[in-house]
Write a protein that binds this DNA or RNA. Structure first.
Lengths: 269, 269
DNA sequence: TAGGGAACGATGGATTTGCCACAAAACTGT
DNA sequence: ACAGTTTTGTGGCAAATCCATCGTTCCCTA
């Protein structure tokens, strides 16, 4: 009668899971809780904490989790930072741009804010300033960031949930945006050329366009690293933008195009 | 002109922040990143790591953050777990209930899912099962949890963002729900008595009611710890529910009321 | 049934982190 | 200006964690 390994243990011990299944559960757990502890998981799966540590190593190698002493956590609110957005230089850029843009907002104004890493930086700056305002957004990280500030009313768009960006897109989103009129809107873009800003994700381009249409004043937040590049879908012409907020003044063709359309250029810091 | 302490240091050293400001920034940072390290913050603010530790202590005392070895993290996706929901026993309960409820869903069905810790457990079970379906929800954690599963289309409701629960409420939410018809809806509640389920947060009660109305089949997910209690706002009568999913069969008045209405009782495990 | 390989557990020393108590510094109100 | 309070820094020690290594167990396949 050999083993019968489950019976031999005979306990309420959770029966031994395969490695892959255990790792899948770790990832799922991280969707529930932002942080898991090494020891807790070891106990729950009935394995040694060394094994969990090895799981962490493997998963973090694939970029699915991030490690911290004593545990692991999910990578940034489900919002995938593509490689180039990781460098410290770009973080500083975005912070400066975000602060400059937030300074444009006056108490009592209504805003629309788009999805993207630059607009998250903007949201953060706005929350720090403590400007009282109403914000409509299709980005979950933006909503969560703004929620730390006092006196900011947040309205989230409906739509199809896009996990990679934690944002909402689709016709529901567009229809919803159409129902509002706001003082300003703040959008990002994945590229900007003399023809105007463009966006890699097509669903986003439509949202940005719609926001610009419903706002009295449109602001584009974009880092100089994206100057002169072109994305898949054109978002708008410069005529639709009242100002662009950048970390460095544009030059050449781009500067000329902006001059023609009369778009203000706000250089952060 | 005396000191000019910032000048005396003369460095790019970030000028000394007040305690309250530093703590506010820590909270903001946690909206951006799910996890912060003690050492990183110490360096960034130019204070000792012991100070950061004290900040962590204070903030976690207020329930604003949770601590982990080497750092701190935001409390469960911005979703406040009230004390009684923390015990391991209740976690196990909810897991069982979630799995039982997820088994009800067939491939290709359309669902509505409400906000709450039990429905998050349901979402997790559904994602693990890998059932292909379309889900409409007003809960951000539910949306994020479901996003791990393959083949699940997620549609999020619009509405006013409620940071404490990471959920959406208000007339926008209700109007949106009204536009859909689904096969099933899964809701939670903060209490259940012979009169029916009730809810502590009034905005939620309206959402739950509306979801029940638009679904061919309504399921209530609730732990036995909530039996016999009453919340602020009544959600529905048992006649509106096709089944309740519980971890233990109800008794007495509650059982009698359920028998009268013919509501199925599904006991998990 | 035996062999091979992967997964896991155990051990021990280096490192990190937590925690406590006391001292220095900054801030506050009079 | 001064005294008291609050906040922060420092040092030492205990505990937890990390990491590399090695032996064992389990599973799969020939």
């Amino acid at each position: 009668m050999t083993t019968g390994s489950a019976e031999r243990r005979g306990e309420a011990v959770p029966l031994r899971l395969k490695k892959s299944e255990r790792r899948r559960q770790i990832l799922l757990e991280l969707k529930l809780q932002p942080h898991v502890r090494n020891g807790d998981l070891a106990e729950r799966f009935g394995v040694s904490s060394e094994t969990i540590r090895r799981d962490f190593d493997a998963l973090s190698g694939e970029g699915l989790i991030q490690r911290a002493t004593g545990g692991a956590y999910a990578p940034a609110h489900g919002h995938h930072p593509s490689l180039d957005e990781r460098s410290a230089a770009h973080v500083a850029e975005r912070d400066r741009i975000g602060r400059r843009a937030a300074a444009l907002v006056a108490d009592g104004e209504t805003l629309m804010v788009d999805s993207g890493s630059t607009t998250i930086a903007f949201a953060r700056a706005l929350a720090i300033l403590g400007t009282r305002c109403t914000v409509l957004t299709n980005s979950i990280p933006v909503a969560m960031t703004l929620a730390t500030g006092e006196g900011i009313a947040i309205r989230l768009c409906p739509g199809d949930y896009l996990p990679a960006e934690s944002a909402l897109v689709g016709t529901d989103t567009l229809d919803f945006i159409d129902r509002f009129n706001v003082d300003r809107c703040f959008i990002g873009a994945s590229a900007i050329s003399a023809e105007g800003p463009s966006e890699a994700v097509q669903g986003f381009a439509a949202v940005k366009r719609r926001m610009l249409k419903r706002a009295a004043c449109g602001h584009l937040l974009i880092g100089s690293a994206k100057f002169g590049r072109k994305g898949l879908a054109r978002v708008a012409g410069f005529a639709d933008l009242d100002s662009i907020v950048v970390d460095r003044a544009p030059e050449g063709e781009l500067a000329a195009a902006l001059a023609v359309s009369g778009t203000d250029i706000l250089v952060a810091q």
